[in-house]
């Protein structure tokens, strides 16, 4: 069972873990994820591999506490073990020298965007990072992503930090200047949708990383299916990245609501049970 080598609480809701998993660290490329389980009766959930160190045999994950599994994961400490940890899954990001690449990260999506920005930079691209969050305390990895980018713009919806407003505004300015060869957008579905609609009118290719519900993560169940270019694709094996101009965001938004009631019930019951502990 993989052991937690380091733990860091980034914000009250967001945690970073470094996990000892040498086989995965060796193989992993930007854009890939793991599926993990915390408890014997627990759900399998996907989390992006944010960074890896093949030499020391570790991989890093960053996650936001949104429900029961992520809550339980956030309770683990250094030295604790993660019950099941499988990967690296999904297709790696296609990293090439495109020229200027704008990497847009929204909320926890910045964690998912970080390895891609890093990979793009290493491949010789000029990298512009635009990272946004609802407010200052939801902003993560600002310094890490700044370190691998040539320029960085930070926005908060509520104006509590740096530039007020949405990520699409600075993006539009770059697009207007005609400097952008490729966009990568990762974050909440409405954000990825807005970015894709914007870049479409400029004809700039845009990759988005989709987060449908997954079960096995190996192409066996079809739970993660998404409509892309009128075809059904499985995000865990054909993605998770797809051409944002082809993705049916409506379909994705709808499918993500499937278990909302169950998720609430499960989390509330868990919180209720652990209240006194």
């Amino acid at each position: 069972m993989p052991e937690i080598a380091e733990k860091e609480v980034l914000t009250p809701q967001i945690v970073r873990l470094k996990v000892i998993a040498p086989d995965i660290a060796k193989k992993r490329r930007p854009g890939q994820f793991v599926i993990l389980r915390v408890d014997k009766r627990g759900e399998r959930i996907p989390l992006t591999i944010v960074d890896s160190d093949p030499r020391e045999g570790t991989v890093t994950i960053v996650f936001q506490v949104v429900g029961k599994t992520t809550h339980m994961l956030s309770q683990l400490e250094r030295g604790d073990k993660i019950l099941d940890f499988a990967g690296p899954l999904g297709k790696p990001t296609e990293i090439e020298q495109f020229g200027t690449v704008v990497v847009v990260g929204g909320g926890i999506g910045t964690a998912v965007a970080f390895p891609i920005a890093k990979g793009m930079k290493e491949a010789g691209n000029r990298v512009i990072a635009i990272v946004g969050a609802r407010s200052k305390d939801l902003l993560v990895l600002e310094h890490e992503i700044a370190a691998v980018s040539d320029e960085i713009v930070v926005t908060t919806d509520d104006g509590s930090y740096k530039r007020p407003g949405l990520v699409t505004e600075p993006l539009k300015e770059y697009l207007d200047r005609g400097e952008v060869d490729q966009v990568v957008a990762i974050g909440p579905v409405p954000m990825m949708r807005a970015v894709s609609e914007l870049t479409k009118s400029y004809g700039v290719k845009t990759l988005v990383s989709l987060n449908p519900i997954m079960v096995d993560g190996t192409g066996m169940c079809g739970a993660c299916r998404v409509a892309v270019g009128g075809k059904t694709r499985f995000a865990c094996v054909d993605g998770p990245e797809f051409d944002g101009h082809e993705v049916d965001f409506e379909d994705l938004t709808m499918r993500l609501t499937a278990y909302r009631e169950h998720e609430k019930q499960s989390y509330n019951q868990y919180l209720e049970y652990h209240k006194d502990k």
């Binding site: 009766r41 759900e43 399998r44 029961k68 079960v215 066996m220 169950h262 998720e263 499960s266 019951q269």
Partner: peptide
Amino acid sequence: TRSNLMRAYSFPEWDTP
């Protein structure tokens, strides 16, 4: 898979819905 491997028939004792 949800029912057998993940025991969704025992939700919410088991987590998978």
